[in-house]
């Protein structure tokens, strides 16, 4: 019988290629910075995000339906933005990239600066993350409603590039939202003993599922941010007439 394969000699050490250390902070600063600037521009300079049956996530829920005409986005975007600003992943990203606390692991910072972590204002307010989660869940309901509406054209059911974008966006946003550490705590993380709780199997499996999604929370954070950005930009370009929506069905 042949010898089992691969036991003769180990392969030479796995040399992992690494990005230079500055790539991550520069990338984060650029992406978050540009998105913030874009958000401000989108929120303060537009009075509608509606294009036929498409509604931009910046403008959902549409507060104009209850008579508010002044900068309709601003009444909405604070919730998801603060949800993201207090998100455990984004906190890591901006502490590292914007505040260099630390810029990257085990590299000298500028010692001697005062550092108080999350014990003083403003960062101590990050403890309010869960409340922004609650509000965001409400917003999510509207976004799902919008996503469904994006498939209902005046002529009936249809699929456009915009409908697919909106659907993808709301899926990514949902995964991001429900993979949140605060939600993980809420569904089961706060328990010391799952078996001692009411509905032990349900609590445990919920917690386990959220934990699994939570492992890639950073990925969902970035993907959903870009999907919001992309969806809004697409609809903005439709409104301004630069693009025409392509109907696939």
């Amino acid at each position: 019988m042949a010898q089992p394969a691969g036991v003769l000699a180990p392969a030479p050490g796995r040399k992992k290629w690494e990005w230079p250390w500055w790539v991550s902070p520069v990338g984060t600063v650029s992406a978050l910075g540009l998105f913030s600037i874009y958000s401000v521009w989108e929120t303060l300079t537009h009075s509608s995000g509606q294009y036929h049956n498409y509604l931009s996530p910046f403008f959902s829920p549409d507060v104009r339906s209850i008579g508010i005409q002044f900068l309709p986005a601003i009444w909405v975007v604070w919730a998801p933005l603060l949800f993201r600003a207090t998100c455990y992943y984004y906190r890591k990203a901006y502490y590292r990239s914007f505040f260099a606390d630390p810029l990257t692991c085990a590299r000298p910072e500028r010692p001697g600066r005062s550092y108080t972590g999350e014990t003083r204002l403003p960062f101590v307010l990050n403890n309010l993350h869960r409340f922004f989660f609650y509000v965001t869940v409400v917003v999510m309901a509207f976004l799902w409603y919008d996503a469904v509406r994006a498939f209902i054209f005046p002529s009936g059911f249809g699929i456009g590039v915009g409908s697919l974008l909106m659907l993808l966006n709301v899926i990514l946003l949902s995964i991001y939202t429900f993979s949140c550490h605060a939600f993980r705590h809420l569904v089961g993380g706060s328990l010391d003993c799952f078996s001692c709780a009411r509905g032990p199997i349900l609590r445990y499996s919920l917690w386990k599922t959220v934990s699994k999604w939570n492992q890639d929370h950073a990925t969902w954070a970035w993907l959903s941010m870009f999907s919001v950005w992309g969806t809004d930009l697409y609809i903005r370009l439709l409104i301004s007439g630069v693009l025409h929506d392509v109907r696939l069905f």
Partner: peptide, 9 residues
């Protein structure tokens, strides 16, 4: 040893 014991002896 670069050996994956789940895959080989």
């Amino acid at each position: 040893a670069d050996i994956d014991i789940t895959k080989q002896p």
